[in-house]
Simulated assay, not measured.
Amino acid sequence: MSDNVNSVFCTIVPPHVLDKLARADDSARADVAQRTLEHDSQQRTRRRVTALRGLAAPAGTPSDSPRRTIYDAEHRAVQPGRKVHAEGDAPSKDATVNRAHAGLGATFDLYLKAFGRRSIDDAGLPLDATVHYGEGYNNAFWDGSQMVFGDGDGDIFLDFTIPVDVIGHELTHGVTQYTANLEYYGQSGALNESVSDVFGSLIKQYSLGQSADQADWLIGQGLLGPGIDRGVALRSMKEPGTAYDDDVLGKDPQPGHMDDFVRTSRDQGGVHINSGIPNRAFYLLATRLGGNAWERAGKVWYATLTGGQLKEDAQFADFSRLTVAAARTLYGDGDEVQAVLKAWEEVGVPTS
């Protein structure tokens, strides 16, 4: 891993969503969103200083079994909080603790059984998570060493441990941190977010035993609360831009093609927005190949992320070319390579 950890504070709810909520006429909704935004901004600045010092979480011992520890922040913005559950403990009376424990395990299982990776760093990194973080905190994040989950406000967002793909998404930021370490800005940042969506979705599909055709390809399905009338998730990999269109949340801004690429200085250069383009490319590849998406499409993406050729400032076209090369290395000049080429063509990203 590079000494410069670029992706040390990554949240599942994009800033543009919280910005919209912070301007709501409902003062209670606006207050919760503003507090979440202020918290995330402060954390991002603090973690950037940590990154520049070259600090990272200590590695563990490679193992085929996870080592999970869950902490309770008891509705304060503290980390890690009070230890409430360790590996091997009986199920907790707290459903949030149990969901966090299970989600960490589902992520560990997918990486081990599909890709032979032993934890986030491939060296047995213990998996720590803090639950019940903050008061009505409307987000979940990876901070460079552990997972943190808010309970949501119960209105716009529910408990962030509910969707297993959210857990897998955030932990995958850690995998990226320990491999390609993609810079969290612009196209490289959108790739960072997309990789997390891809593997978050694969973790959900693996845990549910779903094929690519059976999957919903939604990120954060089940997270939106009763205050949202027209929304199903945070993002759709199948049809970027269709996850929500709601008076409260606004319209999902994700593009699914380079013709609609969004140029902005907000959201780290649109990392949560333009990730829809490589997201759709992966969806197209996985459904074209059929079967279990982690078996062929997932292996191509994993080989690209971990192969050592993906630079920290990689653009979409760099990533696409490397996926073609990875498919060829893994499968020869067969259907897989043609499927990769076609997927990128359909979203307007060149491969040569």
Score class of each variant (00 low, 15 high):
Asp335Ser: 14
Leu284Phe: 10
Ser211His: 13
His257Leu: 09
Gly150Trp: 13
Pro66Thr: 03
Asp122Tyr: 00
Thr36Ala: 04
Asp25Trp: 05
Val300Lys: 01
Trp142Gln: 15
Arg99Thr: 02
Phe316Asp: 01
Pro80Val: 10
Phe141Glu: 15
Leu341Phe: 04
Ser236Asp: 14
Val131Arg: 05
Pro66Ser: 05
Ser194Gln: 10
Gly241Arg: 10
Thr69Tyr: 00
Gly308Gln: 02
Gly291Phe: 05
Asp19Val: 01
Phe9Arg: 13
Trp344Thr: 11
Asp64Ser: 00
Glu295Ala: 09
Asp3Trp: 10
Gly250Thr: 00
Arg35Gln: 15
Tyr244Leu: 03
Gly220Asn: 11
Val324Trp: 06
Ala102Pro: 01
Pro91Trp: 00
Ser2Trp: 12
Lys20His: 04
Ser265Asn: 06
Ile219Arg: 10
Gln214Cys: 04
Pro58Trp: 00
Ala77Leu: 14
Gly308Phe: 03
Asp128Met: 10
Ile167Met: 11
Glu38Met: 11
Asp64Thr: 01
Pro62Trp: 00
Gly168Leu: 15
Gly88Gln: 06
Ser211Glu: 03
Gly308Met: 03
Ile162Asn: 13
His173Leu: 14
Ala190His: 09
Glu170Asp: 12
Gly220Met: 09
Gln214Trp: 02
Pro126Glu: 04
Asp109Gly: 01
Asp213Val: 11
Pro66Asp: 01
Asp216Asn: 15
Ala56Asn: 02
Asn138Tyr: 11
Lys20Leu: 02
Asp72Tyr: 01
Ala77Lys: 07
Ala303Cys: 02
Gly186His: 15
Phe157Val: 13
